[in-house]
């Protein structure tokens, strides 16, 4: 597999003792993890365990209370707005709710991130890139449609195309198969793998869908009580005798 060949020990994301609380509720209590270049890591955890908070901290949508978050070698707490924007151009984010702009067509949704980061492209080049990404997700014919006219699976694919539009080096996926039927969920999981292979991206995937986890993960990190409880491959963790780990595989 190309993605495996491209993998290295160079960390593209490094989380060190990350802590986050909302009022008295401690969500992350010293979470540490390293994601290497070209690698696909899944963070597995129960609902409400703080998985989404964790990736929103990585992209800078939520500020961590303590700890260090390094993305491509840069500590994001030290970045100003400009630096954060530059970092975000290299980090794609696929939202759980897809977050497609309702008032824009599919084309406009994909062009939107380019208007800020790829100002050097002319209209023809921008259009070509939009078509290329839509072709990758198999939905080139929806280019002039509004998001409201698309099914849940189609919206997820369009959201993935938008995430890919800036050719990110790393993509964060927030529960990519939640709310989809098993067949569409499988298609999306395979598409994530294909995307990683084709675009040579690293992935950090938040999920509790074990089928998706099995299909997409090189390594799995289990988030429990705000900490990284265990890290390993699917098979390693499945064979674990620890009841907290085993509970996910039953």
């Amino acid at each position: 597999m190309e993605s495996l060949d491209a993998r290295s020990d160079t960390p593209i994301i490094r989380l060190t003792e990350v802590k986050k609380s909302f009022d008295d509720h401690v969500v992350l209590d010293g979470f540490s993890l390293k994601v290497n270049k070209g690698e696909s890591v899944v963070i597995l955890g129960r609902s409400g365990s703080g998985k989404s908070v964790l990736i929103k901290c990585i992209i800078g949508l939520i500020k961590a209370d303590q700890g260090k978050i390094e993305v491509m070698g840069r500590d994001i707490s030290q970045l100003d707005t400009y630096g954060l924007d530059k970092m975000r151009a290299k980090v794609g984010f696929l939202f759980q709710s897809n977050a497609l702009y309702d008032s824009m067509t599919v084309r406009e949704n994909l062009l939107f991130p380019m208007r800020r980061h790829l100002t050097n492209l002319d209209r023809r080049e921008s259009e070509q890139r939009v078509i290329e990404k839509l072709t990758h997700v198999g939905l080139a014919d929806t280019i002039d449609m509004m998001p409201s006219a698309l099914s849940g699976g189609m919206k997820k694919r369009i959201a993935l195309a938008r995430t890919l539009i800036l050719n990110p080096e790393v993509i964060l996926y927030d529960e990519p198969t939640t709310g989809l039927d098993p067949v569409t969920g499988k298609e999306i999981s395979l598409l994530l793998r294909e995307t990683q292979r084709k675009y040579n991206t690293s992935s950090l995937i938040i999920s509790h869908d074990m089928k998706c986890v099995k299909r997409t993960a090189d390594r799995i990190a289990i988030l429990l009580s705000g900490k990284c409880y265990a890290v390993g491959t699917y098979d390693e963790l499945k064979q674990s005798s620890d009841k907290n780990i085993h509970a996910f595989f039953e």
Partner: peptide, 21 residues
């Protein structure tokens, strides 16, 4: 209603992530 709906469907977050204030 428009901004409220954009907020709850994470469209405002998506805008921020894509480099637009």
């Amino acid at each position: 209603a428009e901004l409220g709906s954009m907020k709850v469907t994470e469209q405002i977050d998506a805008m921020e992530v894509s480099g637009t204030n």
